[in-house]
Design a protein around this nucleic acid. Structure first.
Lengths: 246, 246
DNA sequence: CATGCACCTGTAAGATCTTACAGTTACGCC
DNA sequence: GGCGTAACTGTAAGATCTTACAGGTGCATG
């Protein structure tokens, strides 16, 4: 077991496979006094079919049930993490959410599987990736809260390093498909298009012919494998290829 | 000065103005052994004219110079934070960056203004907001590094709570312009459009007439105050109104 | 100096989007 | 029952995008 949080950061930098990540999370789990963990990430390869990666250190039975029942869609922790940047301790979930029969059933099933309390940590990146890391304990909230509170800052920071490592590994794995690289002009044209300019207007702005604008956008389109300008703009934004100007 | 990180979280939740945030950051600055701070946030109201908010606790002279020279565009800390999720200690900046004459001039000017070392922390949210919080010290890297390392986890966590508070405050201030709310159908149509479907194709998918799809997207367009479908899709994505499906 | 790359330009037919016109149905709420 | 809202539908002219054709310039790199 590693000593302090810097050791974990260093270890995260050295991971080379998702298996390494699993081992690292298990280690963290022990170090910070949790029983189980599960990590999930969503990469915005496309809006409708994003790439999903899970690394589970949950009890197999519960995790299988979670997946097969699609509990992701009702899990209040997922809902929190999807729209927030702050961590959430499980015993802090809004009471009103628990009044929904679906959700309270889900939560009591989790308790039955030995997940009584825990900590969920969201990650959001500049290029639209979303990830969350959950740590759970079988201790009661009364018994575990203080302990969780104490470890939260380090666990929160480390979660971000872990996601960074996962991104690096996933990118390396998927190097069969070369990563898309747009030229300056292509990005520039897309930026204006995303701002509502027609090809003719963008041509005036950049002082070139309309045909050239069309040509650049088409190149971007074929690089991004999209079929319309709308999808091209959408994909460029959701992958962080074009983003707000400073 | 507050005692521990939870007090700061609680205090962040109680802030009601940017002035409160300034006071809170100043307090944190002392508590974690820094001299100055500056916070900046970019809200994706539009790609080309995003809303920018600064809260400066930097020496006035340096901050004025920073703004008037547009140092934001060359600041390697900004560059790091824009594309990363992990904090960065100033003495850890890549050597090769410092070989650029612009950047090394910038860094030495900062040192002359009493900013010798520091910590920069990025924030990225699910709806495309970007923020960063810098803390600086006039101590040399040798003298300050250990101290910074020790405080990083808490400062990192608190930065996210501070950004959350700023968002809340900014939203409340700008309540003159009502927030945009799309209907389910409108989001659904935009999602398919962003996935490259034409109005006719989306009509087949949703089993309604093509005219209805056009109508929904037009409504979304007028709500978002956009002038083309490309811009509508762009704005919906960059504001997080439509996002990848779980 | 050949090769690749970024950048640039023109024409034209057909598909798609944009905007204008003018409506109907269903539902919840006061 | 009146009111607001979401959802739905049709036609048509003109603007814009998409795709196909066929080309030229300048610069860096090996």
């Amino acid at each position: 077991m590693l000593e302090n949080y810097q050791d974990y950061i260093e270890a995260a930098g050295k991971t080379r496979s998702l298996k390494d990540i699993h081992a690292l999370c298990s280690d963290m789990c022990n170090h910070y006094g949790f029983d189980h963990f599960v990590y999930g990430a969503r990469f915005p390869t496309s809006l409708l079919n994003p790439k999903i990666v899970f690394i589970s250190g949950y009890p197999t039975q519960w995790w299988e049930r979670y997946k097969s029942e699609n509990y992701m869609r009702i899990d209040p922790l997922v809902a929190h993490c999807e729209h927030n940047i702050t961590p959430i301790r499980w015993d802090c979930i809004q009471r009103d959410l628990l009044e929904s029969p679906n959700i309270s059933r889900f939560m009591s099933e989790a308790v039955d599987s030995g997940l009584r309390n825990g900590l969920s940590i969201p990650v959001h990146t500049s290029n639209g990736e979303f990830a969350m890391l959950n740590f759970s304990t079988s201790d009661s909230p009364e018994k575990s809260s203080d302990h969780i509170i104490q470890g939260t800052p380090e666990v929160y920071l480390l979660t971000n390093y872990i996601h960074e490592a996962v991104t690096r590994i996933v990118d390396a794995l998927g190097e069969d498909k070369p990563l898309v690289k747009l030229t300056n002009r292509e990005r520039e044209c897309l930026l204006w298009a995303a701002d509502g300019k027609t090809a003719w207007e963008t041509a005036q702005i950049l002082k070139v012919s309309e045909r050239t604008i069309v040509w650049h956008i088409q190149n971007a389109q074929s690089k991004l494998k999209t079929v319309s300008r709308q999808q091209t703009v959408a994909r460029a934004i959701s992958r962080g290829i074009i983003s707000p100007q400073l």
